[in-house]
Design a protein around this nucleic acid. Structure first.
Lengths: 220, 220
DNA sequence: CAACCGACTAAACAGTGTCAAGATACCATG
DNA sequence: CATGGTATCTTGACACTGTTTAGTCGGTTG
């Protein structure tokens, strides 16, 4: 509500906002709230501007179009995602298998705790894949996984990935990614299947699944 | 273009169509073509009626609203999907591991050969989950997988699924489902990662990944 | 033949994203 | 301190979307 207007006499070069405090920031927050409540498909730029109390054309100058705004949201999602994976990796210490397990746990946990972000991140077509340093943020999250895989397969940092390592990586990634999607799609909690909510999925189903994470060094 | 009008004097009870040959059928075909070309998000009911040459309100009487039409498309997708999995399962013969491998292959192949269908099927919110016998069709596809898992884990048909069996099932499902999603999202074919198109994914990356399908009976 | 009914059209409505003009508030400069 | 200049935002409009309402047509049936 209150627009901040104080503290204008610091440095002359700081780009201070306008009517609205900091509209771009506010728009991103509101956009995230909207997809949190209405889902990625339920997103509406007009709903965002309505909540932010500005005109429908206001976001244009900052983000271009709706895709631009969603790209910013996705970028932040990838940053937070990469952070979560890196933290989990560190939690795994020096044991490659533990690092991968922790990453898998964190992967699914992130997806279930921030479903809107996660679903947007993997819904190309809703945002611009090349937006600002989104490619870097996305690639960084990927690298966290690849590094742990390299350690598990005994590959140095510079060495090229072998076919085996790539297969191992893709299988690991696929398990956690697939589990996240299935859980978010309520596929795992149908009446005929196991029941329970998100907590049950995370605490019971996920560990049962992660027992079957690929193990390195097993030929044929 | 040509509406079929011949052969009207068969049986008096057959519900014969109207202006348009068979509009419901035509709408489903066109709808599938639209999502094939424009993606699930690019779907537009008005584009469908435009191509079918009817008014925007025409689908209402047959399918209610747009969700209804997409539900029918999804239903057919699940039927074809279940058929493909069952055929692959049969191809696996009596070896449980082979049955699961073939199913995994078929799962991803279906996703890459019919991306529009597949993506719609797993995009709840775009269609009605309880539409007609869609639940049955979806559950049937699931059962094909569960049956093979039961065989692999040595469980009889009536026996309840154990935690181990469920974990094994979810892990298997997650790998192929995740791989399909990653492949469709172009995540596996980024410049930094492995290159190549769909064929390369199916022929090179997928086998590398399926090597790491969960193996039954491995405790801890 | 008349009445009926399912299938479709025509027209309209509210909602969407985006664009072209214009107004406004801040900024640096004279 | 006044004065442009410019980034920021508003207003109004446009084309598009899905859905509803009322009406019309086609074919069958009593």
């Amino acid at each position: 509500m209150n627009t901040v207007k104080i503290k204008a006499a610091r440095k002359p070069r700081v780009r201070r906002p306008y009517h609205h405090g900091d509209l771009p920031e506010r728009l991103v927050e509101v956009a995230e709230a909207v997809i949190r409540e209405r889902g990625v498909d339920g997103f509406s730029l007009r709903e965002v501007v309505r909540r932010a109390g500005v005109s429908p054309a206001a976001p244009a100058h900052h983000f271009g179009d709706a895709r631009g705004l969603l790209s910013e949201v996705a970028l932040r999602g990838f940053r937070a995602f990469g952070d979560a994976l890196a933290a989990a990796d560190a939690r795994g210490g020096t044991d490659p298998e533990k690092r991968l397990y922790e990453q898998g746990l964190a992967y699914v946990t992130f997806a279930l705790k921030h479903p809107a972000r996660f679903q947007l991140m993997f819904r190309h077509g809703k945002y611009d894949i090349g937006y600002k340093d989104l490619p870097a943020a996305s690639e960084r999250a990927y690298q966290v996984l690849e590094d742990a895989v390299r350690a598990a397969m005994g590959l140095a940092a510079g060495e090229p990935m072998t076919d085996d390592a790539n297969g191992f990586l893709m299988a690991t990634w696929s398990v956690v990614h697939g589990f996240a999607h299935l859980a978010l799609g309520e596929e795992l909690t149908r009446p005929a299947r196991a029941r329970g909510g998100k907590d049950q999925v995370l605490q019971a189903l996920l560990p049962l699944t992660l027992k079957h994470l690929p193990r390195p060094k097993r030929p044929r």
